[in-house]
């Protein structure tokens, strides 16, 4: 029986401190990041793993460990911004070595997690992430993607979508905000050949859980891209992280899929899609773009882009069916 929402809710009822991240942290009300963390850790716990987490510098890190306090009840290490994957490579390797030397019991079941934002993943931490995957460390790298440098006040990252208003690529009189496309991080990761890569959304918990479970069972590195709305700089209401996530999936903006050893599988295929504008409109970060006279044209281009990407995904799924790289 796969892990599901009700099962987990029952298991951790009145045992919140066992999940690993407890209340009292200083993340914004409505932030999706702690939900991403808890969803991940609950599955690991439920399946009998001892989570060990490594964080990249970012919102989650600064808000959960303000000395002398910590919101973590599981082993935690933060080193710097760009090196969480390398740091956890060291931790994971040390665990293997300490077992080999007889210092730690051989049957101890650790689950090594990285939690990093998009800045620490798409941009400054990309090399470190690539190295970790290439070397095959059994670490589950979880990206909480809030599409910008939100910890420092909404600057543009390689993950910021086209047209989003940020302080370093503002929508101006001449330039309509970020003009480039968001990097396709899952494709970059999947190009490492031996890896399990997937996208998840908090709006689809069971899909989320099953991908964490797969990661735990995968005998190598895993990468989970979690869509993680930022209430503060996406300019959305406190309670909207879930509904915006849902819209992201329903508009093809954030397709739910996985790549396992080169085999693509789209895990959620809505019968009907909503137009992309329904995802863009409720978010204040797109308001300056949508107020421009050329807004319709830009939105139309973005709509075509997500349509083509969806088609491409289905084609990849068809083409790679039953053909794993190894």
């Amino acid at each position: 029986m796969p892990v599901n929402l009700f099962g987990l809710a029952k298991t951790f009822e009145n045992r919140a401190e066992d999940i690993g991240l407890v209340q009292g942290h200083r993340l914004c009300p409505g932030c999706a990041a702690p939900i991403v963390v808890k969803f991940s850790l609950m599955v690991a716990r439920k399946l009998g793993y001892e989570p060990v987490v490594g964080l990249a510098t970012g919102c989650l890190e600064v808000s959960t460990t303000i000395y002398p306090y910590t919101a973590w009840t599981v082993p935690y290490i933060h080193n710097a911004f760009e090196n969480s994957a390398a740091t956890m490579s060291g931790v994971e390797t040390a665990a293997r070595a300490l077992k080999k030397f007889g210092v730690l019991p051989k049957d101890k079941k650790y689950a090594f997690f990285v939690f990093a934002g998009d800045g620490g993943t798409y941009d400054i931490g990309l090399q470190s992430l690539s190295g970790m995957i290439e070397r095959g460390h059994k670490v589950i790298y979880i990206l909480y993607d809030n599409e910008g440098y939100m910890n420092t006040g909404n600057q543009r990252s390689g993950s910021t979508p086209t047209g989003s208003n940020t302080t370093t690529a503002p929508v101006g009189k001449v330039i309509p905000g970020k003009v480039q496309l968001k990097k396709n991080i899952v494709e970059i990761v999947a190009g490492h050949e031996y890896v399990y890569a997937a996208t998840v959304s908090i709006s689809d918990p069971n899909d989320f859980f099953s991908k964490i479970e797969k990661s735990l069972n995968f005998d190598g590195p895993s990468f989970i891209a979690a869509f993680s709305p930022c209430v503060r700089f996406w300019r959305i209401p406190d309670g909207a992280a879930n509904s915006i996530s849902k819209l992201a999936v329903e508009t093809k903006y954030w397709p739910l899929y996985e790549v396992e050893n080169g085999v693509y599988r789209v895990t959620r295929k809505p019968r009907q899609f909503k137009p992309l504008i329904e995802f863009l409109k409720p978010q204040g970060r797109f308001k300056p773009l949508l107020s421009r006279p050329d807004a319709d044209e830009i939105v139309q281009r973005l709509q075509e882009y997500v349509d083509r990407r969806w088609e491409r995904l289905l084609t990849l799924e068809e083409a790679t069916k039953g053909k794993p790289i190894r």
Partner: peptide, 13 residues
């Protein structure tokens, strides 16, 4: 760090 009975936080703010 790997002592899960006595979890510690390395590298806080």
């Amino acid at each position: 760090l790997l002592d899960t009975e006595h979890p510690v936080t390395y590298g806080p703010l």
